[in-house]
């Protein structure tokens, strides 16, 4: 067993320490089964005591979009000219948004929900954070069902560029998990984080072109780039429509940002976790 030697001493590895990074990657790879079990646990109990079950995954999304479609139709306010049919645009965008925001909220609460597990058992805690996004991911897949139904109904045929969408979604997840890593640790100490993130997410939904098409006139068009989530969302909308990418630079920068946020969040998580565990 001598191959499995661990030494605990006062932390003194720097942020970019290559050995620490290798260990993080090895830990993450080693905990893939654990992540799957934890995600399975969270998801399988979700609708176990519910009659309508999976309907709850799609109901809020369909109702919100229904209300906005109604308002748009009767010109309560102007929805502009989306490249996609409005229903497809709104249902798809809200699904991507939910994937991001629910992942982030779940990550933030993941360690607090785990309770004494965090302070009593030694296992790669990052698996708790990552596994908490499983629910959001499966809900996202279920939410695609209404999107497909509406596509059939409106006779909309997505372009072949949809094959690139998964790459963008990976970036969305990395972005959410990266922020989630940091907020999860902070939430262990300052419990306000969970509520704060939920609130910010409610605003955030209106600060991205989800229920309305990307604005084209300044200053409103700023939401297309200032909100770091927007370029990713707009990219998926344009891939769906088969339109050329309207802001490739912003997309590239956000993609880079997502990866950096993930890496920084991950490292911060690993460095701070022991310090927080002794205080939580």
């Amino acid at each position: 067993m001598s191959q499995n030697i661990k030494t605990y001493s006062p932390a003194n590895s720097s942020f970019l320490d290559g050995r620490a990074w290798r260990r993080m990657v090895a830990d993450l790879w080693g905990s893939r089964e654990l992540i799957r079990s934890l995600a399975y646990r969270d998801y399988s109990v979700r609708y176990r005591q519910s009659v309508l079950g999976y309907v709850w995954a799609v109901a809020p999304q369909v109702i919100t979009v229904g209300i906005f479609a109604f308002l748009a139709r009767y010109r309560v306010f102007d929805m502009g000219q989306p490249t996609l049919p409005y229903l497809v645009h709104a249902l798809w965008s809200i699904s991507v948004w939910q994937l991001f925001s629910v992942s982030l909220v779940n990550c933030t609460n993941s360690l607090v929900t785990a309770g004494s597990l965090v302070t009593k058992i030694n296992f790669p805690k990052e698996s708790l954070v990552i596994a908490s996004t499983g629910k959001a991911l499966i809900d996202f897949l279920i939410r695609l069902v209404p999107v497909f139904i509406v596509m059939l109904w409106t006779g909309f045929v997505p372009s072949a560029a949809v094959l690139y969408i998964p790459f963008i979604l990976v970036l969305v997840m990395l972005f959410a998990i990266g922020i989630g890593f940091v907020l999860a640790v902070v939430n262990l100490v300052i419990r306000d984080m969970g509520n704060m993130v939920s609130m910010v997410m409610t605003f955030g939904m209106f600060l991205s072109p989800i229920l309305y098409p990307p604005p084209v006139t300044a200053p409103f068009s700023l939401v297309n780039v200032l909100n770091p989530f927007s370029p990713l969302l707009i990219a998926t909308q344009e891939m769906l429509a088969g339109a050329p990418q309207s802001q490739p630079v912003a997309l590239a920068l956000t993609a880079l940002l997502s990866v950096v946020v993930f890496a920084v969040g991950w490292r911060v998580f690993c460095i701070t976790m022991p310090r927080v565990a002794e205080r939580a």
Binding site: N4, K6, T7, P10, I121
Partner: peptide, 16 residues
Amino acid sequence: NGIFMPDEGRITVRGK
């Protein structure tokens, strides 16, 4: 158990 680190000194554990 490795939940948190010592402030001084060293702990070495070999095995699971």
